[in-house]
Simulated assay, not measured.
Amino acid sequence: MELNIVMASGVVFPYGLATTKRRRYMVDYMNVQGVECHVLVLRHQVKSQNPLKGMYGDCDYIDISYLLNEGKIFQYYHQGKIFLKKWFNSDKKNVVVCDTKVEFWDYPIIRYAYSLGYKIVYDQVETDYNTKGTNNSIKTKIHFLLTGKVSRRAYKWSDGSFVISEALKEQNLKAYPPQKMCILPNSTPILEKTKKQFFSNPPTILYSGTFAKKDGVEYLLKAFLLVQKKGYSCRLIMTGKGQPSDMKVLELVKDNPDVQYKGMVSDRELVETLLNCDILTMTRENSKFSNYGFPFKLSESLATGNPVIATNVSDVGKYVKHMESVYLVQPECVEEIANGIIYYLENPQNALQIGQNGLNVMKKHFSIEGVGKKFIDFLVNI
């Protein structure tokens, strides 16, 4: 039976950060395969650069979050129900794919979709948002506590879940034994344009992403300073941002002329930066939050063909091998991160080959085609 898929969550679309890209690449696959799909953007708490409605390929999308932000609660629910009813196709299997957490203000909309006959599936990419590895305010912790209760209630009557890691799968199987599960990694397009032949002079290291405690930026900065202290010439570029309290970590390198912080950049500039830098990094710490999720930046970094330094958290070690497809380090270990940087600096040709091997790993495990097929096959069979 053919599918009709509605992605309904508080994730901006089509352009944004990691979770948006995860959604967009799924839609890319569906557009190519001719699968009917729609995106309903529910309330989100990030600034979106996207129009409130439009087309992304053959997929139409509508953002109704502004209604709730303006206090127009009844209009918010009314519009959500209108589009769910409009998009329902009685000749196809109808599926709503929701985000990890279910906000209490969105629960009635998802429940309405269920009453119409949609299958309800969750795409879980994190565990408890208040767990170790987060740095939330008291207000945010209370909010996530309530959201967690709503989400657990919603999972119980859902038809299945995508999960991003083995740990999340085990957590769900214990809590909801009958539920169907599918481990679905992140996907990414191939970003490499031409095979790199040599490093820049001086070589450039890149960190790109958020600056939350889970990201382990502190360990990377200390490792970079240690490498410089040992007499190696290199530069560090950083993109992205975090909460004001998280950004204090940059004080470690505030007077360092070899460190450049660019802030948030566009998708296009990010890809250019990923390709132009020589050594890419993913240095998540050893926390429950890190080990139940999976770093989007790893698959994206591998897609460039550049050498990557990665911490061995979550399922990372199941996809990549030390000194073969990445330089794999233990989390929260400044010395190991520094050793990885030094190895790449001293062995640039070996580093470039490791980068190419990493690109092959990306093609095997994280391609849009491979992950997209897994996504569709699971939904067909629920």
Rank of each mutant, 00 (worst) to 15 (best):
D267N: 15
Y219G: 01
R235A: 01
P202E: 09
T210K: 13
K262M: 15
K230F: 09
V271M: 04
A212G: 14
Y261S: 10
K241C: 11
P244L: 07
A212T: 12
D267V: 10
V217C: 09
L236Q: 04
L221N: 02
K222T: 09
L270K: 12
K214W: 00
I237V: 13
L252W: 06
C234N: 05
V253Q: 06
L226E: 11
E251V: 11
K214M: 01
Y232K: 10
L221I: 12
L206S: 04
L275H: 07
L206R: 02
P203H: 08
T273G: 07
G263P: 05
D255L: 11
R268F: 15
R235K: 14
A212Q: 09
E272Q: 13
I237A: 08
D258R: 12
S266M: 09
Y261Q: 08
V249P: 01
A223L: 05
D255I: 07
S233Q: 14
L221F: 09
N276Y: 09
D255H: 14
K241N: 14
I205L: 12
K254G: 11
K229T: 06
G242M: 02
S233H: 12
Q243W: 10
K262A: 09
A212R: 05
G240N: 01
L206Y: 00
N276I: 07
I237Q: 10
M264V: 15
R235S: 07
V217R: 01
L221W: 03
L221Q: 02
L220W: 00
G209K: 01
S245P: 01
P203M: 08
F224E: 04
V259M: 02
K230A: 13
L236S: 05
D246W: 05
G263R: 08
V227Y: 05
Y261W: 15
F211C: 08
Q228A: 09
G263Q: 10
L274E: 06
A212L: 09
V271W: 02
V253I: 15
